[in-house]
Simulated assay, not measured.
Amino acid sequence: MNSTAPQQSVLSEAQLMSIVSSAQEAIITIDQSQRIVLFNPAAERIFGCPAASAIGESLSRFIPERFRAAHIEHVARFGSTLAGKRPMGPQRLLFGLRADGAEFPIEASISSAHDGAGKLLTVVLRDATAFVAAQEALLRSHEALRNLSANLQQVREEEQMRIARELHDDLGQQLTALKMDVSFIEQALVAYPDAAELRGRAHAMRRLIDATVASVRRIAADLRPTLLDDLGLVSAIDWLLNDFARRYGIAVESTIEVDDDHFSNCAATALFRIVQEALTNVARHAQASAITLQLYRRGERCVLRIQDNGRGRDTSAEPGQRSFGLLGIRERAHGLGGEVTIESAAGQGFAIEAVFPEASLVGGEASR
């Protein structure tokens, strides 16, 4: 039995070395003075350095100079604890240094063990170049999509402005001229006692034209209220709130402590659309009887807060649901460097708050 123990020990050591040699991750073992005592083939490939040249060298040889002091301290601190294994770095992403001087990102973990000579530390690391490149590509793609979204919103605003003007000016003027002609015919038929039926039809036509003119004005205002361009953001929000209260019978209370001179055309349009979308969400989903709107300064920031007393929403219970309205609000806010937060719970109403750097709301043309 005693004769088989050394054989098992040798076998176990051979198996361990085979695993270390065939591992895809780089494995580096250092002693208490942070000198390399093991440098597997994967480490040779990753760092471009043969094991014969690495063994006996300080681990700092494979760390960029600007990180060496912090890394040496980190490894030493770990070596003095009883921790068995943990990731290296607060975000598990560090940087290595190849033999040719090139830096590259790595993911690494460190573990400790004891042998007859003392404590050994083993670092297992993986080249994260592809992962970082994929992350950067994803961020670029995300930013490109946001830029595309912002551009599409701008194109949409310009198209809505054009259509609203054509509805208000061209179609509105034509309907007004038609109404005048019908009114003339209606008055002319007064001289003909036998034309009572025709007068009645002319009168009905005039009323239909009046209703059509009102519809055209409403549609044009929904597309792009002339108040926003003529009188500024504050007047446009007041009109929007009054129209909302009239349409849906929901009480509205507003506190606006800013003036139009603080908003560029772009900012005024974005804030108006955020308010418009928030009110649409209230009308569709909230089942509310009252809302409050606040627009004010907080230091060097501008705050827009809209809150209702409706049924609210348990956001934790609906992880799969997405609101494109809220997504649009977030994107518009992001375009101005703002952040959106939502406060809601089932039965406790819904509040949306957008906070913007005041500097991002000014600049360019004023809103009027």
Rank of each mutant, 00 (worst) to 15 (best):
N2L: 13
N2G: 11
S3L: 08
S3P: 00
T4P: 00
A5D: 04
P6K: 02
Q7K: 09
Q7M: 06
Q7D: 08
Q8P: 01
Q8S: 08
Q8V: 15
Q8F: 13
Q8T: 12
S9P: 02
V10N: 11
V10A: 12
L11M: 07
L11T: 13
L11N: 12
S12H: 13
E13L: 15
E13R: 15
E13V: 11
E13S: 14
A14Y: 14
A14G: 09
A14W: 12
A14M: 11
Q15L: 14
L16H: 10
M17D: 03
M17L: 13
S18Q: 12
S18T: 11
S18A: 09
S18K: 09
I19G: 00
I19F: 11
I19W: 05
I19K: 02
V20A: 11
V20S: 11
V20W: 10
S21V: 06
S21T: 14
S21E: 14
S21W: 13
S22D: 06
S22Y: 13
S22F: 10
A23R: 05
Q24Y: 12
Q24L: 07
Q24V: 15
Q24D: 10
E25C: 13
E25M: 04
E25G: 09
E25Y: 12
A26I: 08
A26V: 09
I27E: 05
I28K: 03
T29M: 02
T29S: 03
T29A: 03
T29L: 02
I30Q: 00
I30H: 00
D31N: 07
Q32H: 03
Q32P: 01
Q32V: 00
Q32K: 04
Q32Y: 00
S33H: 04
Q34D: 02
Q34M: 10
Q34T: 09
R35P: 02
R35C: 06
R35M: 03
R35V: 04
V37W: 00
F39R: 01
F39W: 15
F39Q: 02
N40S: 08
P41F: 04
P41W: 13
A42M: 08
A42K: 10
A42R: 14
A43H: 06
A43V: 12
E44L: 15
R45T: 14
F47S: 06
F47P: 06
